[in-house]
Amino acid sequence: MTSTTRQGRRGAFNAPRRPRRFHPTWHFWFALPAIILVLAFFLVPFLANAGFAFTQWTAYSSDITWNGFENFRTLADLGVLGHAVLITLVYAAVSMLVQNVGGLFLANALQEPTRVNNVFRAVFFIPVLVSGLAAGYIWAALLAAQGPLNQFLSAILPGGFVYSWLGNPVSALVAVAFVDAWKWVGLAMTVYIAGLNAIPKQLFEAAALDGAGPWRRFWKVKVPLLAPAFSFNVVIGIVGALSSLDIIFAATGGGPGDATTVLQVASYRQYGQGLFGTASALSLVIAVIGVVIAIPLISALRRREVRL
């Protein structure tokens, strides 16, 4: 494993110097097709969009003029900006919590690749395959006021049970975040299993010899070593929550009122009204939140990777 330590010593971005001697620019040629695509269809549209955030641009007129922070002010006046940011953060937090607790629990229970475990893994992975729209429709139906969940609760509770899960602002927000988690928990599970498998068995044996019980071993040995898997799941979870649109569209349409109108939905609404400047402004807010949350996480992930 000499190469691994060499790699570690050099750090993440320090590539070996030797290949350069062969062909100084092959790196560039290999990356070029991907670079062209990413620049043309991600960076250029993204920068254009970021620029539009500071313009007066609507469908009503073909003139586009700079207007500074006017779009942000308008959104704040309408109460859209702060509310959507708050809703987005709550959504992301709930979704990530459920996803990671559920994923970790399942991974821990199903780590060994036995026959039964494989069946359970396969079952819990199924929701990952379902499209966001489908997930939204399925749960909108399950949670409907007269839907299966309430039918079940009415059957076991005295006096029946009527509650509009998606009709109350708080429960609706929690519910859509839960649906998001439901869809992705299977993936989180596999990532955690991969993480658990990467932990050397000797560490457990050593901990067991030291007299640590299963619970202690879980917290003291597994959890710290799962940090990379955790970072990965959190980043993917945040990304998913920030760009979540189809689940919310199918389940609540952003309602009741604006209780589930996350930034992405709010931006989409502004587009629909032909208010492209304010829509771009909301997109930019999503980007900024993504960068602020994800970049420290990614660099933390990379540091740990080096330490391992």
Binding site: P169, D258, R269
Partner: peptide, 18 residues
Amino acid sequence: PGFGGGLSGEVQKLLAGQ
């Protein structure tokens, strides 16, 4: 102008007690 999605969105908030 501005009444399309705007008015219905505001009424939905009113309906939800927001």
